[in-house]
Design a protein around this nucleic acid. Structure first.
Length: 217
DNA sequence: ATGACGATTTACT
DNA sequence: GTAAATCGTCATA
């Protein structure tokens, strides 16, 4: 079991954090002591006020995205498409609205509970392990994360944290970058390689950047 | 007050 | 591949 990441870990720009989160473990602690956890295999960096795709573009600030302006280490959870939640980790300095979207996990602990959580939103009776936490909306559903988790502090909150593995970190070459998913508009930010995936992981969502160049895991 | 839309996912043709 | 589901947020009036 890893050690909980401290404030220092989040005090970086979003690209640095997005890359260093690959391979880290996100943990959700239930009240009954159950641990739901997964290894992060896909992230996206959002660049704050100058990023046309960011919720904080041009300094936009409202009740919805207020936690983006908080100290590094807060969780920013938003609701979209009338039915999905997405979880971001706030980084940078306070009042600097940088964030990293968590897009996919390789489930590690609590798979039974995750399956139950996911099943509730589906018609079929089976969810393959590789689909449990694939996609930002799906992983929130699996971990039971909703708007009530917006603004919680991953450094101190008993309900969730990031754990850093005691083992050696992911090597740089095993992380592939590509354009972010679902970004509209026509700015340079649309194609910017701010999405990071663990090369070859079968738990990554959608099309995998650099898939042709990399072997499987 | 109103209307368009979204950092998505699933089911169906 | 295409469309539906579904509602908070934001821009416009």
């Amino acid at each position: 079991m890893g050690r909980r990441a401290g404030r220092w870990y989040y005090s970086n720009d979003s690209v640095t954090l997005a890359q260093s989160l690959i391979g880290a473990v996100i943990v959700r602690m239930l009240e009954d002591g159950t641990r739901l956890s997964g290894r992060i295999v896909e992230t996206e960096a959002y660049f704050g006020m100058v990023d046309a795709a960011s919720h904080a573009y041009r300094g936009r600030r409202s009740q919805r995205n207020e936690s983006m302006y908080g100290p590094p280490g807060l969780l920013y959870v938003y609701f979209t498409y009338g039915m999905h939640y997405c979880a971001n980790i706030v980084c940078g300095e306070k009042d600097q609205p940088l964030a990293v979207l968590i897009r996919a996990l390789e489930p590690l602990e609590g798979l039974e509970t995750m399956r139950a959580n996911r099943l509730a939103a589906r018609k079929d009776r089976t969810v393959p392990d590789e689909d449990l936490c694939r996609g930002p909306g799906n992983l929130c559903r699996a971990l039971g994360i909703d708007r009530a988790f917006d603004g919680i502090d991953l450094v101190t909150d008993p309900r969730a944290c990031v754990e850093l593995s005691g083992r050696k970190p992911i090597e740089e070459g095993r992380i592939v970058a590509g354009p972010r998913v679902g970004i509209g508009g026509s700015s340079v930010w649309v194609g910017a390689p701010l999405r990071f995936c663990l090369a070859g992981s079968r738990f990554v969502s959608g099309r995998r950047p650099g898939a042709a160049r990399n072997g499987g895991v």
